[in-house]
Write a protein that binds this DNA or RNA. Structure first.
Lengths: 188, 188, 188, 188
DNA sequence: GATGAATGAGGATTCATTCAT
DNA sequence: AATGAATGAATCCTCATTCAT
């Protein structure tokens, strides 16, 4: 079954987040997943391949989370706000996953094959941006830069909330303020 | 002499940037620095120690670069603009160093001892922020979040400029636009 | 069916010749033969067993080839010449098979069980030798040494022809000269 | 010192001869040589490199042995006889070394770099052959084929002597007979 | 009989670190 | 202080073989 594959990815996520992927032996992953050392290589060609699959899995989960309760008919701002809140929500709900996802994006191990998939998954965000720009809402910057800014502002916001363990009102205020700053910057 | 220490750090910067620090053996560093393998451990307790020293070195260089031609008497905005331009300047002038610095900040190897030093070096930025806030210029956010936002916006800007190899006018416009967005977001 | 067994042996011959038997995984053999990995072990006790069977198969093919158009009524010399020419013919027609057969003979994996079979297959050669010796034709050496000399002279001849890609007249002359040397040495 | 390198080669010779080189783990070699596993790789780039060096060492020893007591002023036949006797002598004196040398020559691991060296070492044999041919002594065959024939006839002779544990008179007669056959075949 | 997932011992190689010189 | 030979634990990956289906 695909059971084992999933177990291995789960184990990887846990351990990678704890120790970093270069520091996590495949043997440890296998042990954590309760499978034999060799089994890992039945499901993944190499450690690098495993890492890429873990990355893809995380992206998939993240995107799925964002798309839940998608406000189809709402304005661009509302939609963007939705992305903003749910992103932070996800990042705080699964802090190790989020941390790992960030590290993977920065690292050089990702060879591009899956980067494209990444962009694919994010296409709806691009569509959103395009819509906003056509309405003359946004600053004159490229879609790529827009996306980069959004991602990175989110990152700052999540890190901060997590580091300070913001909860309840404080958290909501923090998120709202972060969006306000982002939105103010990005719009004309 | 301290000569060798510096050589080792230089070599590390070069090689870490090329291959990542987990993938760069100390033997290779020693060779690149033209010293014996053992010598490295006369100057650094361990590889981790070396990495931290490399980090510190980079921060120092970066900060020194920013502080050049510092507009002592100018307004907060002008000063911030100075930081903005020189940061991007540095990042584009020494792309490997910049990339490495970013990776080191994200990685878990930095144990905190030197993180404090980091903050210390950056203290002048904090002072700047404080000054701005006291004038009622900025949004009501903590100094830490402010700093994080700045760093991260700079990062987006540098990455974009580098990826697209912006030069001349296009580059200047990109930098200015980036600052505009940041400033607009951060100020009331 | 015995079909699969044969497929596996064929695949082994191909792959062993390419990579050597120590470097050829059973998984690869199974794949090449279009059967499952486990199936191999339904037909052969172990990899070593497979190797021995491959060896035997090659010997069988080789001997069968020699025996074709056997000059039953001819003189010892003519018969020996027949063996000589057809051996080289076979070696050049199936170079990988020949190479593999040579390597297997040298290697230590062959445990003896099948070596006897080998000799059995070659018995007609022994008979030939006996006949020649009884006629006082040959030097006073044992049958075993005689056989070894013949095999080894053939080997030199085949290797040379193959390495230099001899064809047509050049090849025929080479073969004839080789036999002449062998015959001259072996006869009184 | 070069001490360890030599120890490793000695150990390799012993173990390779016993088990074959593909079956001999580097760990075992290191243990036999009383050095740490890693040390092996200080002296040899890889297992393949080690194998090649072992080969070269064997060739060197073998050639040195042949050249001892070289009959500088003697006839071609005497010289060839000298090579013949001393070769067999060496093969029987160091049976494992000889066996290993033979196996190495057949295997595909030798990549050519050292093969050339091999030929170099053997150059004196080539000179000898040339001299003989110029005197109209030999059959009209290439030097390469000549060398191949000699090597291979020697091989048959050595193997036979060893298998039957020939000693004393029986051995001398065997060697002489072998040479006679070879010489008779090769000369006009 | 056929399959192929699962196994885990084993293998080559790397590399941070030590230490005698 | 400088060296570099020596170390051996650690790592990724392979592969013959088993066995439940």
């Amino acid at each position: 079954m695909n059971d084992k594959r999933q177990l291995l990815i789960e184990a990887s996520v846990d351990l990678f987040a704890e120790e970093g992927f270069w520091n996590t032996p495949t043997a440890k992953i296998a042990k954590q997943a309760n499978v034999a050392k060799g089994t890992l290589f039945n499901y993944f060609e190499s450690k690098d391949d495993l890492i890429e699959c873990v990355y893809l899995e995380l992206v998939r989960e993240y995107v799925a989370y964002i798309r839940e309760a998608w406000p189809e008919e709402a304005s661009v701002k509302i939609k963007l706000e939705h992305v903003w809140f749910r992103s932070i929500d996800w990042g705080l709900k699964y802090p190790e996953r989020y941390k790992l996802l960030s590290q993977l994006r920065v690292s050089d191990t990702l060879k591009g094959v899956h980067r494209d998939r990444d962009i694919e998954e994010m296409s709806f965000l691009m569509a959103l941006e395009q819509q906003g720009r056509q309405s003359g809402l946004f600053e004159d910057i490229t879609a790529e830069y827009f996306r980069s800014l959004m991602r990175i502002n989110l990152h700052a916001s999540i890190r901060y909330a997590e580091r300070h363990q913001l909860k309840e009102m404080a958290l909501v205020k923090h998120i709202a303020k972060g969006f306000e700053i982002f939105w103010k910057g990005i719009t004309i």
